[in-house]
């Protein structure tokens, strides 16, 4: 851990002291200055709890079909009604949180880690490596996210794992680009030269000296991306090209005849969409607040 604190020390000399506040003070500042962000954090935490304790908080098995209760309207026993196969919509939404968060977090974590390593390496090595890397990233960035994800699905096929991969592929270059631009500044700080002079290897400098210092823009990027990944997964599943039946997933719930029954059983179409919106809303609010707290210089209008 000695190397990390050395890194912090070196940064402290170049940045305003506010940047090295301990995390619990940051958290308190955040609660005071960012009530909206805290609201977002609460939504996120509730979603996580819902996903973790899905078996406890649901009255029915999300896969249990029942011909007796097909398209039953919301009432005391079926909180959000039932779908065309008589499955409880509320239970399916709660289990759907599991799918959505699993896809969102995995895609953001794996894609983020790859983007972090690639972005920092590109900035660290510079020269021809950086040039080639930049051109390759340009090519990847020319693909709109959903289009790229669909192209990947067309190769790998549908299913939860493939959807995660399809979301990771377009995320890596986007993350690498943001990380690279911060890492370029870090590289100019003398402690990197010091680390080189100590004879440390490339891997050690990249992972332990440079990567920890681009954490602020990285975390902002990753948080915002969780919401986007959830939205993309829902879109793919809605198109029938994502998560497959019988796995409960919000996008999939909207696909299975939600439009056909829209008039007679609107609850089938309304609640899963609300769940998607709320989840993405929560991550967006949280990400926005995180941006303001972690890195005031990055505060942009977007």
């Amino acid at each position: 851990m000695a190397t990390v604190s050395e890194g912090r020390l070196a940064v402290a000399m170049f940045e305003e002291p506010a940047a090295v506040k301990p995390w619990h003070e940051k958290l308190r500042d955040m609660a005071r200055k960012q009530p909206v962000g805290v609201a977002g954090a609460i939504i996120v935490v509730l979603m996580i709890l819902m996903a973790v304790f899905a078996d406890v908080v649901t009255p029915f098995d999300p896969l249990q079909t029942s011909y007796e209760y097909m398209l039953a309207p919301p009432d005391g026993s079926f909180l959000f009604g039932t779908d065309m196969l008589g499955r409880d919509v509320y239970s399916r939404i709660v289990y759907g949180a599991r799918t959505a968060l699993f896809v969102g977090f995995t895609a953001a974590a794996v894609g983020g880690a790859l983007g972090l390593v690639l972005g920092v390496s590109s900035a660290y090595f510079g020269g021809l490596f950086d040039l080639i890397f930049q051109r390759v990233m340009d090519v990847f960035m020319a693909f709109p996210l959903v289009i790229m994800a669909l192209a990947v699905v067309s190769i790998l096929g549908t299913g939860t794992e493939n959807v995660i991969l399809a979301i990771i592929v377009p995320f890596v270059p986007r993350c690498a680009r943001v990380v690279r631009s911060s890492a370029l500044q870090i590289r100019e700080i003398p402690y990197i030269d010091a680390a080189k002079a100590c004879g440390f290897g490339h891997t050690r400098i990249i992972l332990r000296h440079m990567a920890p210092n681009v954490m602020a823009p990285f975390l902002i990027m990753v948080t915002a991306f969780v919401g986007q990944a959830i939205l993309t997964e829902a879109s793919l599943s809605y198109l029938g090209l994502g998560v497959q039946e019988p796995t409960p997933a919000w996008g999939l719930m909207l696909q299975g005849g939600a439009e056909e029954f829209a008039e007679t059983a609107p609850w089938v179409a309304v609640f899963p969409g609300l769940a998607i919106t709320l989840a993405v809303f929560g991550f967006n609010l949280f990400g926005d607040a995180l941006r303001d707290v972690l890195d005031p210089r990055l505060r942009s209008s977007q």
Binding site: S235, Y238, A262, V270, G273, T277, N284
Partner: peptide, 25 residues
């Protein structure tokens, strides 16, 4: 506008169809 970024466009489409059906009815 923050909510607007979170609403999936396909769901908004479904809700618009639903709204049209109910109002015209």
């Amino acid at each position: 506008s923050i909510a607007g970024i979170a609403i999936p466009s396909f769901w908004l489409g479904i809700i618009i169809i639903l709204g049209l059906l109910i109002t015209t009815q």
